[in-house]
């Protein structure tokens, strides 16, 4: 780029990798070690017998925890805090859940189609009482497809930075500033892939519309749940979750 020096891009790369390492919530080594810890049949049954309200609240809490780490990732990432606060909020509102969905592939075991949830690995059937089988299956399919790319931790770091810093989000006030950061992150990502001979994954990355569609489906399901249980959502759901999704 005529506007960014190699040193600037290298500095941004190191900064994103460090921010990610500090905020990845669960260490990859621990997630790998726990891969054989799957919920027993009895445990799955006990989750399936929970009320829809309880299961929704649990999942809302787990999503909120994951999002708090994404907010922290954004804050530590070079350039993000230099954006105006309107744009920080626009980018997080639109992108935090998308980043959580990408991060989920680290906690996903493609071999038996399970994901790490509340201490053990769970298949899609554990989430039955949510009443969102189609959405859950779509999320599992998405994680499965991402796993086939065999992302390294560094690749996830830069890819999720790019999911977040997206200048095409509506309502940005300083679009040019976001665009410049996005361009530098794209350079950083491509430079890293070139160095590691991994440029072939560029053509296999999920289209932006796929993540957007999963997030939209999640918000639609929340809307239906809220119509059925407005008081539960109002009284017990985490405030950050409500702020982002309702």
């Amino acid at each position: 780029s005529p506007n960014s020096s190699v040193t600037e891009i290298e500095h941004l790369t190191q900064n994103v990798l460090k921010s990610y390492r500090e905020t990845c919530q669960l260490r990859l080594e621990d997630l790998q070690l726990l891969r054989l810890e799957t919920f027993s049949w009895e445990e799955v049954r006990s989750y399936q017998k929970k009320s829809m309200e309880e299961m929704w609240e649990r999942c809302a809490c787990r999503i909120t925890e994951a999002i708090q780490y994404v907010v922290e990732f954004a804050k530590r990432m070079g350039g993000f805090m230099e954006l105006c606060q309107n744009d920080q909020i626009v980018l997080l509102k639109a992108g935090a859940m998308e980043v959580v969905l990408v991060r989920m592939c680290r906690a996903f075991n493609s071999e038996n189609r399970t994901v790490f949830f509340e201490g053990k690995y769970a298949g899609p059937e554990l989430f039955k009482s949510l009443g969102c089988n189609e959405l859950i299956n779509s999320i599992f399919d998405f994680a499965h497809s991402l796993c086939s790319l065999h992302f390294s931790e560094n690749e996830i770091a830069l890819f999720t930075a790019l999911v977040l810093i997206n200048s095409s989000r509506p309502w940005l006030q300083e679009k040019d500033k976001v665009e410049r950061l996005q361009n530098n992150l794209e350079l950083a990502f491509k430079h890293m892939l070139r160095k590691t001979h991994r440029e072939s994954i560029l053509a296999k990355l999920p289209p932006k519309g796929k993540l957007r569609s999963l997030c939209y489906q999640h918000m639609e399901k929340l809307r239906s749940f809220r119509q059925m249980y407005p008081i539960i959502v109002h009284a017990v759901f985490p405030p950050l979750y409500k702020e982002l999704f309702s």
Binding site: V71, E72, K75, Q85, Q88, I89, L92, K93, L240, E243
Partner: peptide
């Protein structure tokens, strides 16, 4: 701003 009170708060707090 009021609509995004929690996000504002999280963004304004220092790194934790």
């Amino acid at each position: 701003q009021e609509k995004h009170r929690i996000l504002h708060k999280l963004l304004q707090n220092g790194n934790s």
